[in-house]
């Protein structure tokens, strides 16, 4: 195996590791969101200063999606710089 293809494989593996870890974190958050509706169905209807917990949780999950996407990009970019010949 050439040095370049070994480096490409290592880069792919490194990014894959980050992706798998981050998707796991997100899956847990999503599962908590879904299961809280299943087991505590009146929870989303309760309010915090007139805004329902359900909307707050849903919007928070959306914001977390964007934040994690940006974080993933920053981490991948850093690794790509490290692997750049």
């Amino acid at each position: 195996m050439s040095k370049v293809s070994f480096q490409v494989d290592a880069l792919v593996r490194a990014k894959r590791r980050i992706g798998l870890r981050m998707v796991l974190v997100y899956a847990v958050l999503y599962a908590v969101f879904v299961l809280s509706h299943v087991f505590f169905p009146s929870f989303p209807g309760r309010d915090w200063d007139g805004i329902s917990w359900g909307v707050l949780a849903g919007v928070a999950l959306m914001v977390v999606s964007v934040a994690m996407a940006v974080l993933y990009h920053l981490l991948c970019s850093r690794i790509e710089r490290e692997f750049r010949p």
Binding site: M22, H37, G58
Partner: peptide, 21 residues
């Protein structure tokens, strides 16, 4: 009402799987 919003949350979450994996 709210049940429609749950679709939005689910639709957007799918993009995280697409991005990470």
């Amino acid at each position: 009402g709210y049940d429609g919003f749950l679709y939005s949350v689910g639709f957007l979450s799918g993009w995280i799987v697409a991005l990470f994996l």
